[in-house]
Simulated assay, not measured.
Amino acid sequence: MKYHTPESEDEILPNKLGLEDPGKIAEEEYRGFLRAEIKFESELDHINQFNWKFISSIHKTAFSHLYKFAGELRQVNLSKGGFMFPAARFLPAAVEEFEKEFLKPLPDSFENYEELIELAAPLHAELLFIHPFRDGNGRTARLFGDLIALKRGFERFNFEMISEKSMPEYIAAVQAAADKNYEPMTRLFRSLKK
Rank of each mutant, 00 (worst) to 15 (best):
F63S: 03
R134Q: 07
F69M: 06
A125H: 08
V95D: 12
R156T: 10
N48Y: 14
D45G: 10
I148V: 10
L127A: 06
I58P: 00
Y67I: 06
D146S: 11
Q49T: 15
F133D: 02
A120M: 05
G136Y: 10
P86K: 13
E118L: 08
T140V: 14
Y67S: 05
I130S: 03
L119S: 08
E118C: 07
L150K: 07
N77Y: 05
S64E: 11
S56L: 03
R74M: 01
S109T: 15
N51W: 10
S109G: 13
I130D: 03
G153T: 08
R152V: 12
Q75R: 15
G81P: 06
F98C: 06
D45N: 12
T140W: 06
F159D: 10
L44N: 00
A62F: 06
G153D: 03
A88K: 13
D45M: 09
F102L: 11
Q75H: 11
W52M: 08
Q75V: 11
N48P: 06
F102W: 13
A120V: 11
I58H: 02
Y67H: 05
F50Y: 03
L123F: 02
N112P: 02
L116K: 05
A87F: 01
D45L: 11
I55E: 05
L143H: 07
F154K: 13
R74A: 01
Q49L: 14
A70T: 02
L128A: 08
E160I: 15
